[in-house]
Write a protein that binds this DNA or RNA. Structure first.
Lengths: 171, 171
DNA sequence: CCCAATTCAATTGTGCACAACTAAATAGGC
DNA sequence: GCCTATTTAGTTGTGCACAATTGAATTGGG
């Protein structure tokens, strides 16, 4: 019962006042819920990755590589920094990943002329050509998810808020 | 960004009847939502892992190791098979992980007498002793999540359903 | 202008996730 | 009982995640 102050979290969401819930949260309910949540979040993320992996196999992309390609298909080219911010990944992960994407001929990397610290990642012709066949992928995933659009929207919303709060608290 | 939507606000609140949505789902909305969902699910899972990692640092556990310990604290001992089913992990991941937990003196592994194929993972005294200090961890995470209990429950429910559907579709 | 602080990418080392495979034990059909 | 199919862990190889560190380029204060 050592929690009185923690409901003033950095990003208290608007909407329902949570005082009643937070009282209960002091009990064992919270422990169990948190435990179930880390199981389910972990498992769901990896299940999502699995289904993408099979769908992406023919394209020769891994799931994280696909996420990079999604951003490049949208923006054409992006500095590593931008990719990292949007994907919540650091250069320790992105550098070797981009190296592999470069090795398979999907992207090029070159130092920015304006700022020699920055590296600009651009699509190659082959990378651009992959966009069309890749359009079939999300359709396949949407079907496999088996949830109504409203639930998927709720999920996206809650996950986004959760990430923002956790990162704010961790920073 | 090819924004050509006419009447659709990006973040429509849940609860609306989804039939209309499902019709639109055949269009580009679904592609975008799916894309946002794989970003947010991926990022949230890793943000969750990050916050746990810092909280677990003093206990000398990694996040996946902690998930194993949660199950062992509840059940005392479990065969590798059971751990794998509950965590959605195969022996390729669990074997080295359990080896490390054994090396740090948290668990023991021994072949079952009834079925020599099976390996039973049990808590050591040191492993059991870790349970008390570990109770502080979820409290810390609950605070950092910054979402009301009702939202966390919704999240758990949707993620569990999503995983079940995806695994069923992928099997 | 100068230099300390910051930014950005890359590298190193550890651990996890997963596919593909191996090896041993068990179960089940005949 | 025998033999094949299945079950269960473990091993190997690849790729991702992340902390810690390095090195180069830039920024900003004096």
């Amino acid at each position: 019962m050592t929690r009185h102050e923690q409901n003033r979290t950095p990003a208290e969401p608007a909407g329902v006042d949570a005082t009643m819930d937070d009282l209960v949260a002091a009990g064992s309910d919270m422990l169990l819920l948190d435990q179930q949540l880390c199981f389910s979040l972990n498992a769901a993320s990896r299940a999502f990755g699995s289904i993408y992996r099979t769908a992406l196999k023919d394209l020769g992309l891994t799931y994280p590589q696909y996420l990079v390609m999604l951003l490049l298909w949208e923006h054409g080219e992006l500095p590593v920094k931008q990719l990292g911010e949007r994907l919540r990944l650091d250069s320790g992960t992105l550098s070797p990943l981009l190296k592999r994407l470069e090795a398979t001929g999907m992207v090029t990397r070159e130092r920015s002329v304006q700022d020699e610290r920055s590296v600009i990642v651009s699509l190659t012709e082959a990378g651009r050509d992959l966009r069309e066949p890749a359009r079939a992928v999300p359709r396949h995933i949407g079907a496999a998810a088996g949830l109504p659009l409203s639930d998927l929207r709720t999920l996206r919303e809650l996950l986004t808020r959760l990430t923002a709060n956790l990162d704010a608290a961790g920073a």
